[in-house]
Computed example of a mutant assay.
Amino acid sequence: MADSASTDAAGSHEHGAGAHEDGAGRRDFLILAGGAFGAFAAGASAWPLLDSLNPARDTLAASTTEVDLSPIEEGQAITVKWRGSPVFIRRRTQKEIAEAKAVDPDDLPDPQTDEQRFGSGAREQWLVVVGVCTHLGCIPLGQKGTDNKGEYGGWFCPCHGSHYDISGRIRKGPAPRNLPVPPYAITAENKLIIGVEQPKGGHGGNAA
């Protein structure tokens, strides 16, 4: 009888141990499965987050301004808006280009050659600058034919008397720097895109 009781007790113990191991195994499986699902869910949620950090197409479009240059005649200037700021665009005459190139950059407060600012070839006829005085942010005069263009035939800031030449370079007055040249590209279709860099070997617009 004692042997039978011992045998039953041992069997019960083994059965209990087996059940305990089965339970532990199931718990381990559930933990591993839960961890794997959590990692998958985290990865799945991270993609929309990372993707949201990339600029949307409409955001990229809003950061550029496209202008058809074809209607602009030689000697004519227009003003467009880019990122909330005015941009002066002028189709310069050959005389204006020659005058801009003849200036010795060493004589300028903010030394730059005209070619450094606007390139050469067909591209050099197009002046493209942000129309905000680099002194205190006023809008210089010079876009209209009747405007005071200052002593150097470009732009004149009426706020504190800064004079810019036909290359947009500061020549006289308190402004410390030239009118900024924004990044821009000119396509083969004579479209100006402000806000993107001209690709190397890119088109410079039509001279005609």
Rank of each mutant, 00 (worst) to 15 (best):
P183T: 07
G75N: 13
H135N: 00
P174F: 05
C159K: 04
G38M: 13
A207Q: 09
V87H: 05
G25Y: 10
R26L: 11
A122E: 08
G202I: 01
L32E: 12
F40M: 15
H160R: 11
S120P: 06
Q143N: 15
A77S: 15
C138A: 14
R91G: 07
Q112V: 02
E124Y: 02
T187F: 06
S167V: 04
V181E: 05
H203I: 00
Q94D: 15
R177T: 08
I186P: 03
K172I: 03
P180W: 08
L179G: 09
I97N: 09
G142C: 04
P86R: 03
E197S: 01
P176Y: 02
S4E: 15
F40P: 04
S45V: 15
W155V: 04
T146P: 01
R83Q: 15
V181A: 03
H163S: 09
G137E: 09
K149E: 04
G121L: 09
N178A: 14
G11N: 14
T113A: 07
A39K: 05
T79W: 01
G195T: 07
K144E: 15
C133D: 07
I166Y: 01
H20R: 13
I194F: 14
I193F: 10
A39D: 05
Q94Y: 10
A39P: 07
A17H: 12
K81A: 03
G142A: 05
D22C: 02
T64Q: 13
D107H: 06
D68H: 11
V80D: 01
G201T: 10
S70I: 12
V196Q: 03
L32S: 11
A9R: 11
K81P: 01
A41C: 13
Q116H: 06
R123K: 15
F29T: 14
A2S: 10
Y164T: 01
I166S: 00
L136T: 02
D104I: 12
S85K: 15
D104K: 13
Q116S: 09
F40T: 13
A122Q: 02
A39H: 10
K144M: 12
K101D: 12
D107I: 04
Q198C: 00
A39M: 14
W126V: 01
C133R: 02
D110W: 01
D8P: 00
A185W: 05
P71T: 12
A17M: 14
L192D: 01
I31H: 11
F118T: 07
G150R: 08
A188R: 11
A2W: 05
D114M: 07
Q125E: 09
M1F: 08
A208V: 03
S4M: 13
L179W: 04
I89E: 00
D28I: 10
Q143T: 15
I89Q: 00
A10R: 14
G195M: 05
K101Y: 02
G16F: 07
A41S: 14
G195K: 08
A44F: 11
E66H: 09
R26S: 11
G23D: 12
E14M: 15
